[in-house]
Computed example of a mutant assay.
Amino acid sequence: MVLFFCLLSVVIGLYLSSFFSIVVCLTLNAIALCWVWQKILAIHPDSGVIILEHKQIRFENENVKIQGQITPKTIILNTSVWLHIKDFNKRQWLIISANSVNNQSYARLKRAALIAINGEEESK
């Protein structure tokens, strides 16, 4: 996403000749960068509390409160778990890195994600 805005600013900068249009382009890209950075921080927190119950998850920290069901769209990688969480009215992502929690908690999180992924496949 950030790469898209960087390339967009370079391409527009090549075709813009006035100083005002270049400043407008850079300002819009700076605003977009701040927006994307806030979204990244919201889905990839550096601290917080996770409560797991079968396929349900609750995550809280000082900025974000997420509660819902882990969906089968969840992705398990070697060093992180990308949780796709479905709430009553919205769906969102939460990325938990392996180095941000202890080994036992990470294993429990992976197990809950596997139950959510495989549980949906078995019912089909």
Results as ranks from 00 to 15, higher is better:
G68V: 09
L83N: 02
F5I: 07
E122Q: 07
D87L: 04
V10P: 02
Q69E: 11
E62C: 03
L14D: 06
I76C: 04
S80I: 01
N118E: 12
I50H: 04
A30Y: 14
E122C: 05
F20A: 15
L77G: 04
S100N: 06
K110A: 03
L83E: 04
N61Q: 05
P45M: 11
S123H: 08
N102P: 00
H54M: 07
Q92A: 05
S80G: 00
F19V: 14
T71F: 03
I50K: 03
V36T: 12
I66Q: 08
L7Q: 10
E122F: 10
A42T: 10
R58H: 09
A98N: 06
I66E: 11
I31D: 03
T74Y: 02
V64D: 14
S17Y: 14
Q104D: 13
I31T: 10
V2N: 10
E62F: 02
A116S: 14
N29P: 00
S47E: 15
Q67W: 09
I40S: 08
I115G: 00
I85Y: 04
E60V: 11
W35Q: 05
S18P: 03
I57H: 02
K65M: 12
C25E: 13
I50Q: 05
T79Y: 05
T27Q: 03
L77H: 08
A107H: 09
R111W: 07
I117P: 00
G48W: 02
L41W: 03
T79E: 14
F5E: 07
R108K: 13
K86T: 03
R58D: 10
F88N: 08
I22R: 15
E53M: 09
F59N: 04
S97D: 04
H54L: 07
S123T: 12
W35G: 01
L16T: 14
N63H: 12
H44C: 12
L94N: 01
N78Q: 11
N103T: 11
V10D: 09
Q56A: 08
K55T: 14
V64W: 00
L26G: 03
I117T: 01
N103Q: 13
A113W: 02
V36L: 15
P45Y: 06
D46M: 04
M1E: 07
R111G: 03
K65R: 14
R91G: 13
L7F: 15
E121I: 12
T27M: 12
H54V: 09
S105Q: 11
H84N: 13
V36W: 05
Q56R: 14
S17M: 11
I96S: 01
G68T: 09
I43L: 10
S105W: 01
I66S: 05
I66K: 07
D87Y: 03
T79R: 10
F88P: 00
I76K: 03
V49T: 15
W37N: 08
S97V: 00
H54C: 05
S123Q: 07
F88K: 10
S21K: 15
W35P: 00
Y106N: 01
